[in-house]
């Protein structure tokens, strides 16, 4: 059994959606923005501090699925995790997956507005709108 960690730099939003797609709880092709807005997970994700792992569930292979977000430099996370386990001589089987390898205008607008006005319903909705418009090339 391994641990799969979906990570992002979007306050856990992309990581959560990608993790739920991986778990088969939502579908990448058919889920609408309205359905995404109704997810009860958002309250928990809003309280998740950066750098903190949150376990979402177990997939069909029995792998534990986590989400993780950081403010910036998310590309360092896989390197950090691998070198961390090696340096501490701890064997582990974990896989880090970038939940948002690409962005679009909707997502960039949501991020820009979040940076200047904070997180609110508009930025949340814009982000989700952008996520549903991404090409179906999720890393899962």
């Amino acid at each position: 059994m391994k641990s799969i960690i979906f990570y992002c730099d979007t306050h856990g939003k992309a990581a959560l959606i990608t993790a739920l797609i991986h778990l088969g709880m939502i579908s990448r092709n058919t889920t609408t923005v309205k359905e995404l807005l109704q997810l009860t997970w958002w309250r928990r994700v809003a309280q998740l501090p950066p750098g903190q792992l949150l376990e979402i569930g177990c997939d069909q292979q029995g792998n534990r699925v986590f989400i993780l977000w950081v403010d910036r430099d998310k590309q360092l996370l896989p390197k950090l995790a691998v070198s961390f386990s090696e340096a501490l001589n701890k064997e582990t089987d974990w896989q880090f997956v970038d939940a948002l390898p690409q962005k679009n205008g909707w997502i960039n607008t949501a991020r820009f507005l979040s940076a200047i006005a904070g997180h609110n319903y508009l930025t949340h909705r814009l982000f989700l709108q952008g996520f549903t418009k991404l090409p179906a090339t999720a890393p899962i």
């Binding site: 950066p50 950081v70 950090l80 386990s85």
Partner: peptide
């Protein structure tokens, strides 16, 4: 370690990874 812009999240991150490693 050089942790670049992970400054604010770094202590939490290390504790989280450490917990996963036991």
């Amino acid at each position: 370690i050089g942790r670049r812009g992970l400054k604010n999240s770094f202590p939490t991150l290390v504790q989280s990874l450490g917990k996963l490693l036991g």
